[in-house]
Nucleic acid binder design. Sequence first.
DNA 1: CCACGTTTATAGGCTAGCCTAAATAGTTAG
DNA 2: CTAACTATTTAGGCTAGCCTATAAACGTGG
Lengths: 221, 221
Amino acid sequence: MSVQLTKGESAEMYIKAIGELTLEEALVPISTLASRLGISPVSATEMVHRIVEQGLVEHERYKGVRLTETGKRRAMLVLRRHRLWERFLTDKLKLPWEDVHDLACRLEHAVGTEVIDALVDFLDEPSSCPHGNPIPNSEGEFEYSDGVQLNTLRQGDEGVILRIHPESRDVLSFLAQKRIKPGAALSVIDVDDFDGLLTISINGVDQIIGQRIASHIVVAA
Amino acid sequence: MSVQLTKGESAEMYIKAIGELTLEEALVPISTLASRLGISPVSATEMVHRIVEQGLVEHERYKGVRLTETGKRRAMLVLRRHRLWERFLTDKLKLPWEDVHDLACRLEHAVGTEVIDALVDFLDEPSSCPHGNPIPNSEGEFEYSDGVQLNTLRQGDEGVILRIHPESRDVLSFLAQKRIKPGAALSVIDVDDFDGLLTISINGVDQIIGQRIASHIVVAA
DNA sequence: CCACGTTTATAGGCTAGCCTAAATAGTTAG
DNA sequence: CTAACTATTTAGGCTAGCCTATAAACGTGG
Ligand SMILES: [Mn+2]
Ligand SMILES: [Mn+2]
Ligand SMILES: [Mn+2]
Ligand SMILES: [Mn+2]
């Protein structure tokens, strides 16, 4: 009769986070990981030791962590589940763009391949999440299309928004409110000399946004 | 940025199980609960104390447990989520009848009202799970249509299968294999004098089934 | 009415994940 | 080359959920 409750969702969140942070730096400091997960550095270190034991990551002392091949595959499969659930929640259930990220973060741990494969069929093999990030295939492989962070653009530059990365509820609801989404064309009207505030024209409207938020917006190169 | 992992799935499983077992006896002995959940009686007793503290159940010493109003509502909402996910998994994802119960048992804890309400719309407000059990409404209310357990029928009795209850992977795959599902008409050809083996005619085929499995099959009165 | 079986409690233990405070080790800028 | 800063470890603690072994309390059949 036994029912079996999950355990080990944490490990999945750790490797997923490492996978996402690896896009920025090859070696992720445990402190960065800890703050991303909202966990104390001490606890993060403990958990890192556990997942090192499990062969999911390598740790270079005082430098940071890196996923092993196994770990990378596992992490990408979590990301796959996450992004597929996001597609389902937005496309089929019509839930708000800014809500689905957190909801998918719960669902991503609940069920495995059987459901996910069926979900892929049901959704007609989508290639990206609603926020523009690519969905890894069943082997955990995927490619990011080339793009640059909006905060690196200068006055006069133009481009189309490719994706929002990394995703978080705060960032997404801020952007939803300003109607800034993947697919939108934009041009940089001005970049402030002091704080780097960007004045951009998007959907025919001028908006002023800061460096922090701009770093989450990836624009086609 | 904190991520928040669930905890408390166990409590949901306990109250759900109590809710289901209450159909048979008003006061559920902790031992019954324990064996249903595949947990030791000592651990089940501990957990019962915790959910008593939380006001979800009442415990009559040496008799058993009973859901409080709050507990009943909560339990029925878990059941609601469970049965809705089952419908989704069978109707939309085309997953096997006998697989969806266990899968839904994972999904039922993952997300709350926002997703479930949207799911109800998406599924066009289904009234029962694929195994014939009614889906409680958003207040946790529902009604079982009248029915009797197949093992209480005698030779010559006829009826239509209403539902399978209680559900479990073993029971469902056994029945799937024998193509015994809700909606099917059956008649009792014979009841064995010694072990109560039932010979039934269903879908034009004769089948012999035991008392244990027959007790999971509810037939229209 | 009392012995036997069931139910509950007690005692002692375990793992996963989290925490803080304080000590120590490594890196790097000046 | 060392002080300051950062990264990690150590120590000590906590909760939720599980476990086994053993003891005590209860309730009922004969
Ligand atoms: Mn998650
Ligand atoms: Mn996304
Ligand atoms: Mn469950
Ligand atoms: Mn069902």
